[in-house]
Simulated assay, not measured.
Amino acid sequence: MNENIDPVIVLDSVQSMARLRAQDLGRIVTHIGETIDIFPVNYVVDGDGILFRTAPGSKLFELTVNADVLFQVDDHTDADAWSVIVRGRAEALETDAEVDRAERAGLRPWIPTLKRVFVRITPTTITGRAFHRDPEPERTGVAEY
């Protein structure tokens, strides 16, 4: 590895959205007071937003108390890895038009449970990073700070 080259590649929003579109499993992070939770969800990118389905329970309750969320997706191979983080607001879809559009997005639960509530995450910021997976640099010698 060339020590003069930054191993981390910053992805712009277009590159980050392309990575999001290529996957279907992510993690949503909710926050209420001192409680922070993380939930795996299958999802689909719909326009500039992210859709997932859920049922009544802690995830939906937490989103109604505080709609500010983080959404994270990543992937890796033996040679490369990447991560995208979306900061945004999550809101349950309420109108018939919103639900009809969400139904056409092709999002289906992975497990045979009824998840009748569609939730859209509207991004406020999207950041991504990618890198080539190289061996760790030598640890001998004096560390540069």
Rank of each mutant, 00 (worst) to 15 (best):
Q72W: 11
L63T: 00
G47S: 07
Q15F: 05
G47D: 07
D37R: 10
L11E: 03
R108L: 13
S58Q: 14
P137A: 04
H76Q: 12
K59E: 11
R53A: 13
A18R: 12
A102P: 02
A105S: 15
F71I: 07
L70E: 13
F39I: 05
A97S: 14
Q72R: 09
I85F: 10
Q23M: 10
G106A: 06
R120K: 15
D80Q: 13
P135I: 03
D6L: 11
T64F: 03
L51E: 03
A143V: 13
A105I: 11
M17D: 01
Q15S: 11
D37N: 10
R129E: 04
V142A: 14
T140A: 12
R101G: 04
T95H: 08
A102N: 03
L60K: 01
I32V: 15
D134T: 11
T64E: 15
Y145D: 08
I28A: 05
N4D: 15
T113K: 13
N42I: 02
L11D: 01
P56F: 06
A81P: 01
I85L: 13
P137F: 00
K59N: 05
R89P: 02
A81K: 06
V29L: 04
R87D: 11
V29P: 04
M1G: 14
F71W: 03
L93F: 11
V119N: 02
W82Q: 01
Q72S: 12
V44E: 08
Q15M: 09
I32Y: 04
L60W: 01
D134A: 12
P40C: 05
L70W: 12
A102G: 06
G106L: 08
D78T: 13
L93P: 05
R89G: 04
T113Y: 12
D48W: 14
V41D: 02
D12K: 12
G47R: 07
V44P: 01
T127H: 11
L51D: 04
L70T: 12
D48E: 15
I5C: 06
R19V: 00
D100L: 15
R27L: 03
G106D: 05
P137R: 07
G33N: 06
V8N: 09
P56C: 03
Y43T: 13
Y43R: 10
E144M: 09
I5K: 14
Q72F: 10
V99D: 09
L11F: 05
I126N: 02
T54V: 10
